[in-house]
Amino acid sequence: MTAPKRITIKATRFDPDKDEKPRLQSYEIPFGDESMVVLDALNYIKGHVDGSLSYRWSCRMGICGSCGMMVDGVPKLTCNAFLRDYWPRPITVEPLNNFPVIRDLVIDMGDFMEKLKSIKPWIIRKQPVPLGGGAFVQTTAQIDEFRQFSQCINCMLCYAACPVYGLNDEFLGPAAIALARRYNLDSRDEGVGRRLPVIADPEGVWECSFVGECSVVCPKGVDPAKAIQQTKLDTTMRFVLPFGNRD
């Protein structure tokens, strides 16, 4: 009987109470199942080799957006990064770029959460509609206007891929702007004017220089770069055209 294949995982370790800076630690683990993903490898390490390894994960199926990490330098959902695509080379797993590291592979997502909140990601009505007022009726065409931008799972891979955010963390960032566009395009929403001060700010859409990597790494095909460029055009039209600032 042949020995099972093995693969080396190099994972970032960082204990804020002991370490001055993050370091890579190698773990060699069995790779017997072709369907194994990087998250499975991390779970194996935590369960059988080193229980102190810290990382975020939840659903294992590309829905929750929790397990985003740098896999060989590329932002990926580790539940969707198959070991077979890397074997026999070792795989380097690091915390998402562009964010402070709390411990090991866990980043501080506080800045992202604040930015998400700042664009008011909910339906805003000028006059509240009472619960008994009936349903907001939307056609399929109206839903198609924003459907793509509503697929975001807040995994922050786009922020990790964005060098503009890496150089200036004041930038509102891809996912927040894509979500703002999702609500601005929603026929039920009347909150464009309230989101405008944030998204049309110099640190909003105008900070983006269209690198486009955010759309490349998005695991849900959201295309935040498209959302940002279209928002630039919209905000310009609102400024230039007569009556452009109407809501």
């Binding site: 970032t12 960082f14 804020p16 001055e20 800076k21 370091r23 690091e94 402070p100 590291v101 501080d108």
Partner: peptide, 18 residues
């Protein structure tokens, strides 16, 4: 390894900045 940042905050709440 990408991190060329530095430690910030007090012990127990320290982070390694990007």
């Amino acid at each position: 390894p990408p991190h060329g940042g530095r430690l910030g905050g007090e012990a127990g709440t320290r982070e390694f900045g990007w």
